[in-house]
Amino acid sequence: MEAMSMIRPELVCPAGTPASLRTAVDAGADAVYCGFQNATNARNFSGLNFTTAEMRGGVDYAHDKGAKLLLAINTFPPGGKTDLWKSAIDDGVCFGVDALIVADIGVAEYVSQNHPDQRLHLSVQAGASSAEAIQYYCESFNIKRVVLPRILTVKEIKAIHDEIPCEIEAFIFGNIGMMAEGRCSLTNYITGVSTNMDGVCSPASHVKYEEDKARNLMTKLGDFTVDCFSCGENAGYPTVCKGRYLVDHREEPYYAFEEPVSLNLTSLLPDLMQAGVTALKIEGRQRSRAYVRSVVSAFRKAVDGYMAGENPELSGLLALTEGHRETAGAFGGKKWR
C-alpha cells in the first residue's frame, strides 16, 4: 500500500449528547456531528441531542481541541412548519459550526440564500446516489461535501469521485438501514411518526415486547409484529427493515429486507481512502459513551496506521456490532443488491 497516494481522511464521529461529544473529541475524532433536541435532525430521540446552550458549548469544546463540529439539520420540514428549521440553521451559523449537514432542497436553499458563506454538506438523507444528482446539489447550493448513500460499491464511489466537484464522506461503521435514506415512510405508515419530517425511525414509544404461551417473544412496532424470538435467542430491537416476514411461496419466515447486521468496513478502509473518500463516518449518535470511546479510538489508530503504511489490527470491533454480526453491505460488491 502506498501511504503517499492517500489524503489523510477526516474521522467523523457521532455525538448524541454533550458528554459523547467530549468523549469522541478526546478519543481522537477530527470532527463530530450532532443535532438539536427537535425534529430538525434524523436522530430525534428522547434523551439525545443538544439544547442551544449545549450546542454553543459543544462548538467551543470541539474548537478548543482542534476538532470540527458538524450540525445535522437533515430532515424535511413540512409545509408551514419551516420556522423550527430556520431557528436551528440561524443558531448553528451564529455559534460558528463548521458545516451544516442538510438533506432537504428547501433547507439548502434557505441556507445558501441567507448564509451564503456557511459551509454545507449534503446529508445521506438527500439520497444523492449518482454523479449528476450530486452535481445538481453542488451547482445549486455550493455543497462542499456529500455523504454518500450506503448503497454504492467502492468501484462506483471511485467513479463518482472523478465526476463531482466536492469531497466524499462515507459511512464505515455502525447501524445500516436497508432503505434509501430520505425515501422511507415505513415508520410513519405504522406509527404516525415520520422519519423524514419528525426525524424518527422505529420510535421506542411504539415498541412492544409480548410473550406468548410457548415463551416466544414477539417484538412489535405499532400494531405489527416485526419479529419473534424463541427463549434462547437474543431479541433484537424491532425495525421494519430488519424483521422477519412471510410470503406465500416460502415455507419459513425470512428476513425480507435485511438481517440484523451492522456495517463494518474495517477491511475496506484503504480501498475507500484510495477511491477518494476523504471523510470516514461512524454511525451511532444513540450509542453509549463507552461505545463511542472504543470505536473512535480503534478507528483513530486504524487511520493513523494506514497513513503510516501499516496494517492495523481491528478485529475487536466485531464485538461492538449489532448482534455481533457484520457486513460490508453494498461497499463489498454488487451481489449485496
Binding site: F76, G80, T82, I105, G106, G182, N196
Partner: peptide, 13 residues
C-alpha cells in the same frame, strides 16, 4: 419521489 415537503423546496424548483 422528489421530496417536495415545503414552500422553500417548491420555490427552488
Amino acid at each position: 419521489f422528489l421530496n417536495v415537503y415545503n414552500e422553500w423546496t417548491m420555490s427552488h424548483l
